[in-house]
């Protein structure tokens, strides 16, 4: 919409900023909305743009939450949600696979994926600590590899 309809930014600009927002922590779309909003309208834009993006979906999700409170304990609703959860779980595995395949220099960086899974999914360590240590090590390796090129 930003690129094709309104021509507010070029595809390259969009990709660069999406790239930035994808590896920063926090919800990617919201981060992107803040960046684009600031770019065009300063502080008001940076506040309005994520709110605009969230308002309608938020309302829908709240209605779904109310429906869940009312009908969530029906066996039929529960089995439907279980089916969706299974599919959602598959979509997550597929997403992880795709992102993993896109990693550069896998012999150097895939071990960090394995360590993250071990720490978070298996040992159930607190995520902030795992991320701080993991990021420091992974950043170090990345810095070193970049110097080798």
């Amino acid at each position: 919409m930003l690129v094709e309809e309104k021509r507010w930014m070029s595809a390259e600009e969009f990709n660069a900023q999406l790239g930035l927002c994808q590896f920063l922590p926090g919800p990617n779309v919201i981060n992107l909305a803040v960046v684009v909003g600031k770019r065009y309208c300063g502080l008001p834009g940076a506040i309005i743009s994520p709110l605009g993006l969230l308002a309608a979906p938020l309302l829908i999700v709240l209605i779904l939450g109310m429906l869940y409170d009312r009908f969530g304990n029906l066996p039929l609703a529960q089995s439907m949600l279980r089916g969706i959860a299974a599919v959602g779980c598959g979509l997550l595995f597929a997403m992880a696979w795709r992102m993993g395949m896109a990693l550069k220099e896998k012999p150097f960086f895939l071990p960090f994926t394995v360590l993250t899974v071990a720490g978070i999914a298996w040992l159930r360590w607190p995520m902030p600590a795992v991320m701080l240590v993991g990021l420091a090590l992974s950043w170090g390796v990345a810095y070193w590899r970049l110097g080798k090129r």
């Binding site: 990693l103 994926t113 899974v117 991320m131």
Partner: peptide, 28 residues
Amino acid sequence: KAISLGVAPLAVGLIFSGATLIAQAAEF
């Protein structure tokens, strides 16, 4: 550049962990 390169493998690990967590919590 090292930050974006270094974050990617961790993000993959987190999303994979998210998938295993749903599978576990749902007791598939």
